[in-house]
Design a protein around this nucleic acid. Structure first.
Lengths: 204, 204
DNA sequence: TTGACTTTCAAACAATCGTTTGATACGCTA
DNA sequence: TAGCGTATCAAACGATTGTTTGAAAGTCAA
């Protein structure tokens, strides 16, 4: 599991910290395990980051998600919504991004100052962008309340596959969310949501 | 926070354990804190439950959720689906049931044997029941894959409000999910999902 | 009341935690 | 080379953890 490389000690510690924190949580992670994986001395954490808690704060970084809002700005609203759901699902189900997702889920249960940072820097812009996208895709003007609920409905469907992954695995052991299945799932969410959205818009 | 009452030592320990485990997780929870809240001696946990881990296993109990499958069997499929979503959302947002939900979320991140138990006893029957409900509400025969995805879409929308509660709170500080707001949210999910479902059914 | 069994208790145990220490090695300027 | 600040290291610190212990208290049948 130990990832290789970076030569700088701080960077090695940071990389190892993201791994261990995401695997065991803040409480479950030990400074000794982080230093072992980073192949640095036990005192390195306190020397470079002052404390375990400060290291945790430094390890949290969710800016990659912001890319989703800037990426695709071409095509009509429906096409961009489709692209957004596809990209979002791909990121969610990407094994390589698993540590960040786990860290996020832990923040949802036990929020620290890190969650305020993540919400402010990443999630709020993402909700704003998706809200505009949904409004455009709806065609007619939707009330703020309905718009918010539709955004939640879309995100909720996507996040389910990440949050409830452990349950899905146990319910359908033969089901694997590879690239193909993930794309098909995103397609379903798009069709399901567009129909739902248009129904809400019609009765607005 | 300490709940009052039960006279039996084991029961007092169990009740306190559910509180503390849900608040701090398995690692974060301490036997001393559990015993303090239960107002029993420190040795009580090991005497009555052998170990902290065995106490955790004994503390996990999700059977209440099963009631949703048995409760409402009256009315047409759509009415029963509506009732299910309403009841499910009510249970999810119920403050009193918060400890169980937190325990569940922790299991999603770090599955223990407890999750297998929960999935087998509670979640699998719930998915089966909802699957039948969705099939009936669709009218025409839906493929197993589409049916599963529609069930996931509905559950995902509901669970979002619980799993992402900490985020919603930060995005919309003035929004509170009291009885009225929860009911309105359930209503939205029902309308959104029924339209989505009928669209899927139409193209089946 | 006796005696055996269960339950409770304060105290201590061994292990592990985050953190600190002081010595040592390194890299650079003067 | 000498001197100084930075980085690394093995070792230890104090605190907290889950667990164990042996005695005291309680319970109840004989």
């Amino acid at each position: 599991m130990t990832t290789l490389l970076p030569e700088d000690t701080s960077e090695r510690v940071l990389a190892a910290a993201r791994e261990v924190f995401s695997e065991h949580g803040f409480q479950g992670a030990t400074v000794r395990e982080i230093c072992r994986r980073a192949q640095v001395n036990l005192a390195a954490v306190n020397y470079h980051f002052s404390s375990k808690e400060a290291l945790f704060a430094a390890a949290v970084d969710f800016k990659p998600l912001t890319a989703l809002c800037i990426a695709n700005r071409e095509g009509c609203a429906k096409e961009r919504l489709q692209q957004f759901i596809q990209d979002f699902m791909t990121q969610l189900m990407d094994e390589k991004r698993s540590p960040q997702c786990q860290l996020m889920m832990r923040e949802l249960i036990e929020p620290t100052l890190a969650l305020d940072k993540i919400v402010h820097e990443t999630i709020a812009p993402l909700h704003l962008y998706l809200g505009q996208l949904v409004q455009d895709a709806a065609g007619v003007k939707i009330s703020p309340t309905d718009l918010r609920r539709c955004v939640f409905s879309i995100l909720g469907q996507c996040l389910f596959y990440r949050h409830s992954h452990a349950v899905i695995q146990r319910l359908h052991p033969k089901l694997h969310y590879d690239t193909k299945e993930t794309a098909a799932t995103a397609q379903h969410i798009m069709e399901f949501s567009l129909a739902g959205l248009q129904h809400i818009a019609k009765n607005a």
